[in-house]
Each structure stands twice: as C-alpha cells, then as structure tokens.
Design a protein around this nucleic acid. Structure first.
Lengths: 223, 223
DNA sequence: GACAAATCTGAATCATAGTTCATTTCCTTT
DNA sequence: AAAGGAAATGAACTATGATTCAGATTTGTC
C-alpha cells in the first residue's frame, strides 16, 4: 500500500515549519530583514538550507509570512482600540499613544516593518501594513469630524500625515538616539501626540502639554 | 621632458566627469538609484564602464556625489526661505509649502531622495539630508516659540513630525495616486499644511482651510 | 615622427546571496 | 526486514551587477 503521512510526521513537519518561521522572525527582530539570510535562518532553525525550500518556495515568501505574522499583531492591537468604546478623540489619543509606545519598545522590529530598505515583495506587504494604519486613523478621524470633535479635513491626507509623523519622530535619522528614547521616550511620545492631536484640530488636548490659550494673533516681533 | 596635463585635456576630463554625473542624475531622476547601474550610466554618458572608475572610485561614491548635488539644491532653497524675512509663522508656512510643492512636482526624485531603498552609503547621505530638514524646521520653530507665535514644544520632535508627515502624505503607499496629485495636488498640499500648522500650535492659520472657531469643548456624542 | 605617459576600453572576473538537485536518511507498508 | 516513497541535506550552481586590468588609443614632449 502507498505511503501515507502519519500524524506524528505531520506534527514534526508543522513543528519544523514553526521553527523556521521563529528563526526568521528572531533574526528580523534582531537585525532586520537584511539579517534574515537563508543560510542564517537554516542554521538558527537547525535545518539545511535546502530544507527551507521544502517549506517555502522562496526567501521572499518566507519573509512575507514573517512580515504578515508580525504586522498582523500590530494591526489588530490598533484596530481593537479604534473599534472600542469612547469618543473619537479618546480613541485617537489611545491609538496614537499605543502606536508610538509600541514603536519605542520594539524599535528594531518597528524599523524592520516601517523603515528598513526592503525589496519589492516585502514592500508590498509594508504598503498593506501602512495603508491599514491609514485606514484606522482615517476611520476615527471621520467619526470625530462628524461628531464635531475635530476640525473638518481630508481624512486620508491627515491620516497619512499622522502615519508619517510618528515613525519619523521615533525611528531613523531624525529620531532621538536609542539610549535617549530609553529614558525620555515617554516625553517624546507626549510631544508627538501633542503635535498630532493639535494637527487634527482637537483644541482641547487632554494630555499634559502646555498649550497657549486660544487667542487672536498677537502683534509679531520682526526676526 | 615629462608629460604634463594641458588645459584642453583638463577641460575634456572635467567635461567627461560632468557627463557622467549628468547621466547618473538623469537616470536617478527617471528611475531612482536602482536605475543608476554602472553599465547604464556608462552607456548614457558615452564612455566605457571602466572609465567610470577613472573618475569615481566606486559606484557608491558616484551615487553619493549625485545625491549631494541634488539634495544641496533642495536644502538651499529651504534654508534661504528660513533665513529670509518675515515672522516665523510666515516663514514656516513658506518652507512647508515649498517643500511639499517641490516634492509633488519632482515626485520621482523626491522618492529617490526620501524613500527609495538604498544601501548604507546613500543612507548616510540621506540621513544628512533629513537632519538638515529637521534643523531648518526646528530653527523656525524655536524662533516662533520665542516670539509667542507657536505653542511651546520640543522643537526637535516637532520638526521630525513635520519632516515625516509631508513626504508620507505625498510619496509612497499612503499618498494619493500620481494622477490624482496631478490635478488636486494643491488641495493636498493645503491639507498637509493645515495639519502641520495646527500641529505646531499656530492658532491663526492664514491658509484657506476651514477650521472651527477656537472654543471650549462641546459635549461629545457617544460613538 | 618617435617615444612615453595618460587615458580609455569592454570582456573577463569577482562577490554575494538565493536556489537547485543528486544523494542520503528516515518513514510507512507488506 | 525489505522495498519504495517522502523528507532532509549541503555542496554546487546561478543570477545580478560591481569591479578589474591587459591591451588599444590618445596626448604631450623632443
């Protein structure tokens, strides 16, 4: 009779697949997708390079799978808050703080997901990830504008502004050094939120940042 | 007697160098740094690949030179406005509009300078470019805060937010399609500016975007 | 014009990292 | 325990694109 895959073998195969994905994910979390070379993944997963290709058709597919797993978690966290209870303003505040705080905590991973140079396949996954961010922000903005909480604006453009401001302020050449984030990361997050919340036209930020009283323009001093 | 380089030869060498740089720059402007392959640059410049290496020690150096030339122009334009006359608010407005408008007009080039995946050498140049943006914005913010035009904020973080918001809203997966920018780019730029100017705490934006009157928070509708 | 130095040429070489596949090892069935 | 199919192995192969260098050409002096 023909060979048939037993349960124990299926389990082992699934296990190996997991090991490979975990190895790849860990390498990505440590050194970005650049560090996830096939030989390294194989070594870390304890298999031969050829074995990787019995589980994934190409490096691109393996990396995409890793990207999807990691980004799905992030998207779910934000989407959960967005769909939760509370005013649009409260939810926007919560979503932004969560996004920023998680990016600070997982800087390396955030870099890999948001900023690291990647090739086309992963760029597609990243685009999806980014667009989801945009949609989450835009949804809250729409509700908030309808409720009169925010200034009326083009929600797509405004969402993109937010989605660009936060990572740029936390990751890359314009971000504070990693050790600075370590100690005053919360301050930085507060500042980013002050900027974004003011940007959407929320005139009553509930976070503790000094803002001037609304007022008619004062005479301005010449430079 | 020993060989000595004559003026006409020096002129020809300088000319060839220019041709090479121009060829590379044009390729970058058309298809990003990825399109600036050495064989292509050589073909376009009308020289052999080996010749490139008589003018530049490596592809990295050639690309860096191109990056510097292109980015220097952009930085000078912005720095000129920043150091010019006018209130901080006016200058910030002008700098942001200029930055955004130029990015729309030269989308491909802006992509190459700001967003295209590049390797470490170019990433360094890009970091410098980005930091200069940050410094230009931060300088104006500092002056504006001192003059009471903007809300008091951490100028570095705020500058980074601006530097992230604008390109993200105009380039990449969260940006409008290129053909959309073609027709309603000005609207998008206005929206971005409304976000950024409100974000810095400028409560009297002089650009034409509907904003609600400053007011005490209204009772909020439950979602 | 002759000689030497500088410059240019482009096919060949090198480097990197992903992918393949002939061989070996392991499982399942009889 | 023998046979045959599935899975694993890893050295060899491949693709891409930068870089080199031996030879050809041009330029400068006498």
């Amino acid at each position: 009779m023909a060979y048939r895959r037993t349960d124990s073998v299926s389990a082992r195969l699934a296990d190996t697949r997991r090991h490979i994905l975990n190895a790849a994910r860990e390498l990505v979390a440590e050194g970005g997708f650049a560090a996830a070379q096939m030989t390294e993944v194989a070594r870390k997963a304890g298999v031969a390079t050829g074995t990787l290709y019995r589980y994934f058709p190409s490096k691109e597919e393996l990396c995409r799978q890793v990207f999807r797993e990691v980004s799905a978690r992030e998207m779910n966290v934000l989407a959960g808050i967005a769909q939760g209870p509370g005013t649009a303003a409260k939810r926007l505040e919560s979503v932004l703080r969560t996004f920023a705080t998680r990016a600070v905590r997982g800087r390396r991973l955030a870099y890999a997901l948001l900023a690291e140079p990647v090739d086309v396949g992963l760029a597609e996954e990243r685009a999806r990830f980014r667009r989801t961010h945009g949609e989450i922000f835009a949804g809250i903005l729409e509700e908030g504008i309808a409720a009169g909480e925010f200034a009326p604006r083009d929600v797509k453009v405004t969402a993109a502004c937010i989605a660009g401001a936060i990572p740029t302020a936390l990751i890359g050449p314009l971000a504070p050094e990693s050790h600075e984030l370590e100690e005053k990361g919360d301050k930085v997050v507060d500042e980013i939120m002050a900027f974004c919340l003011a940007g959407v036209g929320l005139l009553q930020p509930r976070i503790k940042v000094k803002t001037p009283e609304p007022r008619i323009a004062e005479p301005r001093i010449r430079a």
